[in-house]
């Protein structure tokens, strides 16, 4: 019987996915890397590693550094460019009948527009996630996602050029993430995903040098989860579009916390590195939880957080 388990299907801004567990961009390559280690057909969707208009070599090593309960990365968005992505990476991803969401970033609004057009024309992707955590080279390097006007402009331009569902991925390195979330909602975003990594650093005290060649890097892993959860909770109360929770989700319990505070879906990132089958383990764990609580449909769980509730 196909419907023996609870209903896991969710709608993330017009993209219907069979369960709410996605891979976070940059942690799952272009899918092929993980094929030997899990059944990727079980995923809700795959969010591929970010692509830019032109290929990028990324940063010099060292690019990663472990920190307590987390890791810093400064990969520098290394990628082969959107043309190679469409020609060589997408055909592989398409064969699994799992929705593919391309992650897009750029250094100018024109970059975002061009990549959006090319991906939309390719007919090979089911949605776009727009990474606005990168600097706008035409505006003195201000991060798109930390300036409401720029975040709005990117969202509007991308939406104007595509019929695909558009998810805007938000940076937590801002004063008020809710303001940015509301702004991109106004710009027509179909969903928001948060959080991208928190900017951090680490110092080699013996040599008095940075542990990362780039000096700063993005912090991910369990260390960021409480912050991510707080932001998802706040944003979910402020916007009507679906919120996708990301940040240090290592297991089903972590994922459930995000769903309960209002995330329509979750992305699994750093956990893939230490457990290649983390995503499918989390899907199983969520199903078990729903069964245990006699919940027939996951949508009856999402956003049911009782913040007045007493832990008596």
């Amino acid at each position: 019987m196909k419907n023996a388990g609870p209903e896991m299907q969710v709608d993330i801004g017009g993209l219907i996915i069979k369960n709410p567990v996605l891979t976070a961009s940059g942690t799952f390559g272009y899918g092929s890397e993980y094929v030997p280690y899990l059944d990727i057909t079980r995923l809700g969707a795959i969010i591929a590693k970010g692509v830019s208009l032109e290929p990028r070599a990324g940063n010099k090593p060292p690019r990663i550094m472990e920190t307590p309960c987390g890791m810093l990365n400064a990969i520098g968005l290394e990628n082969p460019g959107v043309h190679v992505f469409i020609k060589e990476k997408l055909p592989f991803l398409r064969q699994f009948s799992v929705p593919v969401i391309a992650n897009v970033f750029g250094e100018t609004i024109d970059d975002f527009k061009r990549v959006t057009e090319l991906l939309s024309e390719s007919k090979g992707v089911d949605g776009l996630e727009i990474n606005i955590s990168c600097p706008n080279v035409k505006k003195g390097g201000t991060i798109f996602g930390s300036d409401p006007d720029m975040a709005l402009a990117v969202t509007r331009e991308v939406k104007r050029l595509t019929d695909l569902p558009v998810i805007i991925k938000l940076t937590p390195n801002v004063t008020d993430i809710c303001l940015i979330a509301e702004t991109v909602e106004e710009g027509g975003a179909d969903a928001v995903s948060l959080i991208n990594t928190l900017t951090g650093m680490s110092v080699d005290i013996e040599r008095r040098i940075p542990h990362l060649a780039n000096v700063t890097g993005g912090l991910s892993g369990p260390a960021v989860k409480p912050i991510a959860l707080r932001m998802v909770w706040q944003v979910a109360k402020r916007v009507k579009i679906p919120v996708i929770g990301i940040g240090g989700i290592m297991n089903a319990s972590d994922a459930l916390e995000f769903l309960i505070v209002g995330a329509r879906a979750v992305q699994i990132g750093t956990a893939n590195f230490i457990n290649p089958s983390a995503t499918t383990d989390i899907i199983d764990g969520i199903e078990d939880y729903l069964k245990r609580h006699n919940i027939d449909d996951i949508n009856d769980l999402i956003g049911t957080f009782d913040e007045e509730g007493k832990a008596c």
């Binding site: 940059g26 942690t27 799952f28 390559g29 890397e33 993980y34 280690y37 590693k49 990324g58 090593p61 060292p62 690019r63 990663i64 550094m65 472990e66 890791m71 990365n73 990969i75 290394e78 750093t270 893939n272 590195f273 290649p276």
Partner: peptide, 16 residues
Amino acid sequence: EERMACGVGACLGCTV
């Protein structure tokens, strides 16, 4: 030898 996160080619943390 390099610092690694994933070990399977996904994170691009160990490139030379």
